[in-house]
């Protein structure tokens, strides 16, 4: 199949970027989207042009590295799929495809399609953990956890930290990412001791990083490659308001 790509090219964080068009003459429907870009990059490199820089690593949909908005949708048109697992059979011969980086103030572009997602790490640093040092943990089966809660916590913990939620949200809000971690730990007994501090500190850090606010449109949920539910956002709202008004935390 033949394709016309329109790709965001930006040399460095401070450089002016622009959309540039490329023709892909031979793509196979069985290729993954990133393999299609590999082929284009080989071509560019061969011609002495700078290949398109994009983040990728595991290429099996779990590391969360890949991060590109394809035709206005983070990770492209297929539900519950990262860009690396998206295959060209989803497109038609002759299609125009727009490829852009995640757009958010909190995710500055480093080069082309690569953005800096350090803000997510800093949010986790603010409280996305259970403070338990190595050694001395009690026997794992001492804490029975209702299967339903454990499963729900797993659903929240499935987040791969890719940032598609931010990219999809018209406000560049990180609520789905933050709420997934808050909910994962708040649903488990291990997370209870630090529950109030955790949600207060994580939301505080999220605001500080310059993410926008949630306006309940659920674009994040639709774009999430792990299909994490926006219900976790409601849970975080409840946790946050409860911690603010009814806990002793200052």
């Amino acid at each position: 199949m033949k394709l016309k790509l329109h790709v965001w090219r930006q040399k460095s964080p401070k450089a002016q970027g622009k959309m540039t068009s490329y023709d892909v003459k031979q793509a196979s429907p069985d290729m993954s989207f990133l393999e299609m870009l590999d082929v284009l990059n080989e071509d560019l490199a061969q011609k002495g042009e700078d290949p398109i820089a994009f983040d990728h690593d595991c290429r099996e949909g779990i590391c969360g590295s890949c991060s590109m908005v394809i035709n206005g949708q983070p990770h492209g048109p297929e539900q519950g799929t990262t860009a690396c697992q998206l295959h060209m059979r989803k497109f038609k011969d002759g299609d125009d495809i727009f490829i852009e980086p995640w757009r958010a103030k909190a995710f500055p572009v480093l080069k082309d399609l690569i953005v800096d997602r350090g803000a997510f790490d800093r949010i986790i640093q603010a409280g996305g953990f259970v403070s338990v040092n190595t050694g001395g943990a009690q026997d794992a089966n001492c804490i029975p956890i209702p299967k339903h809660n454990a499963d729900l916590a797993m659903d929240a913990a499935a987040c791969i930290g890719c940032g598609a939620c931010v990219a999809a949200c018209k406000n560049s809000s990180a609520m789905l990412f933050v709420s997934a971690k808050v909910s994962h730990l708040a649903l488990l007994p291990q997370g209870q001791p630090e529950k109030t501090r955790r949600v207060l500190n994580m939301v505080n850090q999220m605001d500080k990083e310059g993410f926008g606010n949630c306006t309940n449109q659920y674009e994040c949920e639709a774009a999430c490659p792990k299909e994490i539910s926006a219900n976790f956002i409601a849970k975080m709202n409840r946790e946050y308001l409860g911690a603010s008004f009814f806990s002793q935390e200052e």
Binding site: E100, K105, A168, F211, N213, Q217, Y218
Partner: peptide, 27 residues
């Protein structure tokens, strides 16, 4: 106030944007 923050959170927009879930009312 929230809306100004939302605008500031995305200084550069998309050349192409497709909505999947947002309703007309919400937008």
């Amino acid at each position: 106030k929230l809306n100004l923050a939302n605008k500031a959170a995305r200084p550069v927009g998309y050349a192409k944007k497709t909505y999947r879930r947002a309703t007309l009312a919400s937008r």
